[in-house]
Amino acid sequence: MIRARNLPFAATVLIFIIAYALCVMQFPNMLSTRVVGNLLTDNAFLGIAAVGMTFVILSGGIDLSVGSVIAFTSVFIAVTVRAGMHPAMAFALALVISTAFGALMGLTIHALSMPPFVVTLAGMFLARGAAFLLTTESVPISHPFLDTLGDLFFRLPGKGRLTFLAMLMLAVFVIGAIIAKRTRFGANVYALGGSPQSAELMGVPVRATTIRLYALSGALAGLAGIAYTLYTSAGYSLATVGMELDAIAAVVVGGTLLTGGAGLVMGTLFGVLIQGLIQTYIVFDGTLSSWWTKIVVGLLLFAFIVLQRVILLFHGPKGKPARMVPAGG
């Protein structure tokens, strides 16, 4: 039985399957492991960042710094590798920096009781500015280690490849889903998204949870930056502008309530895949402008927000808020 709160997730999966079926009906070639493999690889960095965003949104917050942190990470790796550092070392350092950066934003949000929107907006400018400070040019990188990673893949039946990036993203989703549903930290995140006041009165360590939450989002943005660097073999400070919005869209289309408290990490995977699918369709079609992706995503977002309201209306607390007398009638 599907519980009411899992309806949006079911809807997302259904939309993905229907959309994919429609695509295949028009372009039978789309039914191949190559398309699927590419879908996963091309969206790996978005997916990884979107997992972090899922946690933040589940808690009722938002992280606008993601796109900038990805750009910073990729520039940081490119510059340090160019200067002779081993990529593995550069990756580790980048993760440490992005995690610390996220933790700092979390601490600020809690300590100053500022809206996450404002604090992460500042973080967005900071990270982007720092990327520009490192370099304003696009820095290509090459290193045997990176080639090894790039050549790491499983061959899928058919012509497809499950690349390192795709596996990395899937692993992040699986671990993310486990953290969300199977750890106390995950439960605390949902609790914060339900009501910060109640969560606090129920003994949720609000401060620690907030800090860890944004640290997690920072870490995953850093990891997404690494994935992005591997994907493009370059670091560029103007890259991934506005990527946080794609991540937010993936989370919401994936069935997570934008106001927090309800949703599933795995829903976000499908949110990402739906976006990727639209892009693939546009490539196959060949005549459509790629901006159609944005339009369709926009429509889907609307549809989901409406769906969530409807579900709340019908499955809202018995005889409570959704239907209660609006204050003053």
């Binding site: 709160r5 439960a187 949902y190 609790a191 109640s198 949720v204 408290g261 309800a262």
Partner: peptide, 13 residues
Amino acid sequence: LENLSVAENVYLG
């Protein structure tokens, strides 16, 4: 917390 299950509410933390 209305968004959590009954059991999660009882054992939160």
